[in-house]
Amino acid sequence: MKMSNFSEVKNPETKINVADRTFIGKNVVLGSRCKEINIGYGCFIGNDIYIDVDYLTIGDYTTIHHGSIIHGIKTQIGHNCWFGHYTIIDSLGGNTRIGNNVGVGAHSQLWSHMKFGDVLNGCRWNSSSSLTLDDDVWLVGHSIVGPIHAKEKSMLMTGGVAVKDMDSNSIYAGSPAKNVSDKFGVQFEEVAYEEKCRRFLQLRAEFCAATGIDEQLFVLVDEFSQQDGVTQFNLHERSYRPIRSAEEYQFIKFMLYDKAKWLPALAA
């Protein structure tokens, strides 16, 4: 348990696991309902964040900016996610699952329940359910979503309010949000493997020229193998074999978040 990483842990029985190279800012509080908190490698948890969720898992290289709130029962956040300032992540509906490479702009709200009016006196609006954001979903700033399923690569434009599921690689806008892909196209286009290789080698060259780090520390492979001291990247799988070196950490951070995102294929 690394309680020293947090300004306050209100439940002394909370199980806490924070991986290396993860930064936790000032005034980050774990509330009384927290039972188990797992935060991955290379994350950034900003200042003035309140976490009060029974079970929280955060993958590697995820950023949660200042003033955000995470509360509820079970929240799962994948690798390489980015949450802007003052984001609310709610899982009081039971389970909020956020995939890998998900972006959520500042002042956004992710809800898994809708409760307030008195059921005894006839209020019809009382519901809770799971909230799921699949891989590569992007909610641009000031977005609000209810307990929906946003499918892989879907995107919600600034100020959108999504109360229904979002289709894969489609763009939504408005309140309530509607599919506007016929006007804006899709979030992701197909890129040929050869072009991906060219872009990777260009990124590697730019990074190494700026840092003086040897390019041969980062190699492209079709299959992972045991190579000591070298980080292997597989474009087919969009993954890498982490060795947790200082050079690898710098290169991954250089690519995040808008150049390239990689999922760890094997434990270091």
Rank of each mutant, 00 (worst) to 15 (best):
N11R: 11
N38I: 13
I45L: 12
G78T: 08
V18D: 01
L131Y: 05
N100T: 01
S91N: 07
S127W: 04
W82C: 11
D90K: 06
A106H: 12
D118N: 14
N100H: 15
G78P: 10
I70V: 12
T22E: 11
I89L: 09
L110T: 03
K10N: 15
K74A: 10
Q109W: 02
G72R: 06
T62E: 04
I98N: 00
N100P: 04
G25L: 07
S32L: 14
I88G: 01
I16L: 14
Y61P: 03
V119N: 07
D54I: 08
N17M: 11
Y86T: 02
K115A: 05
W111G: 03
S128H: 15
I89Y: 02
F6P: 06
S112D: 12
I89V: 13
K74S: 15
S112F: 09
I64L: 07
I49K: 00
G78K: 04
D52R: 06
V9Q: 13
D136Q: 02
Q109A: 08
N27L: 03
I58Y: 08
N121V: 03
G67T: 05
V9R: 12
G117K: 10
N101Q: 01
E8Y: 12
F23T: 10
E13D: 15
T132Q: 07
N100F: 05
G78C: 08
Q76L: 07
Y50I: 00
E36M: 09
D20G: 15
D54Y: 10
N17Y: 15
D90N: 14
D136V: 01
A19Y: 12
F23C: 06
L30Q: 00
F116A: 14
Q76A: 01
C123H: 09
E13K: 14
G40I: 07
I89R: 00
R124G: 13
V119T: 08
Y41L: 04
G59I: 04
D118W: 11
L110P: 00
T132K: 08
H65M: 14
V104K: 00
R97G: 05
D48P: 03
E8P: 05
T75V: 10
H71Q: 13
S129P: 02
G72N: 10
F6D: 11
I37A: 08
I39L: 04
T96C: 15
T132E: 04
I73E: 13
K74W: 05
D54S: 14
L56I: 04
P12S: 15
I89S: 01
H107R: 13
